[in-house]
């Protein structure tokens, strides 16, 4: 297991945001957490990245306990995230945002770095066209591409994607999901949080359903996509 989450509990004040969450992500796979708004998906990702304090439970990355590590040390270990709401740096150019993604890398002047940059530009040609533009002046879809590209520039072993399809046009959603499969095919493990359950289940090797802070179902993406209760609750009865 590349990532193991064991009995994770997180509180906001006295309110329990997530309760006793346990799941794992196998290296080289795509895993997804799906669920309604407020189910605790984003909190789970933020806690894995170290932005939220853990009340109880453990997070293991590559077998090492990272539960108490500050966020930047987790990035150094190979964990990167494209946050909810994109979180691009509005006053920096597209290129500077991508460079920020590689903040922990020491090989910025090398050919390997240029290759990774080219790879991101291949995935998102739009970003190459807009290299010199301030990120804050781009459209929502372009910012989403930038957030994903930026997360990839860290050369992560595991990338956490929080709602990459949110607010995008249907055509762009298709494109983002096929890019996620492509990222995975190139060797990066993916943990995907989505409200677009149909697409997420189609791409995921393993899937977990969150309801009010707890995991209520787990299985392969295919299993859950075929499950009647899941269909009724999350897929509008039809995939």
């Amino acid at each position: 297991m590349l990532l193991e989450v064991q009995g994770l509990c997180v509180n906001y004040g006295h309110i329990e945001a997530i309760r006793d969450i346990t799941f794992g992500v196998e290296e080289g796979t795509v895993a997804t957490l799906i669920g309604a708004n407020g189910a605790g998906k984003t909190t789970t990702l933020k806690t894995i990245s170290g932005l939220r304090k853990v009340r109880a439970g453990q997070i293991l990355f590559d077998g090492k306990d990272i539960t108490q590590l500050p966020p930047y040390e987790r990035v150094l270990m190979g964990l990167s995230q494209s946050p909810e709401g994109r979180g691009v740096f509005p006053g920096m150019t597209v290129r500077e945002n991508l460079d920020m993604g590689a903040f922990v890398r020491k090989d910025v002047k090398t050919a390997a770095y240029q290759q990774d940059l080219d790879r991101v530009y291949d995935l998102f040609p739009r970003l190459k066209e807009r290299q010199g533009q301030a990120a804050g002046s781009m459209s929502g879809g372009e910012q989403q591409m930038l957030a994903i590209g930026r997360a990839l520039m860290a050369k992560p072993r595991l990338v956490l994607l929080d709602e990459p399809s949110m607010g995008l046009a249907p055509k762009l959603i298709q494109q983002i999901f096929s890019i996620i499969s492509e990222i995975n095919a190139q060797g990066t493990t993916v943990l995907l949080v989505e409200q677009n359950a149909a697409q997420a289940l189609k791409r995921a090797h393993t899937a977990h359903i969150l309801e009010t802070g707890e995991i209520v179902r787990s299985g392969t993406g295919h299993e859950l996509a075929g499950d009647d209760a899941v269909k009724a609750a999350y897929l509008g009865g039809d995939v």
Partner: peptide, 25 residues
């Protein structure tokens, strides 16, 4: 500089900066 970019990142979005591996402290 790289560190200067880190400073600007924290100024613009502290959480995103942390996710990029910037030590905000």
């Amino acid at each position: 500089t790289r560190f200067g970019r880190g400073i600007r990142a924290v100024a613009q979005d502290p959480e995103s900066a942390a996710l990029m591996g910037v030590n905000s402290t």
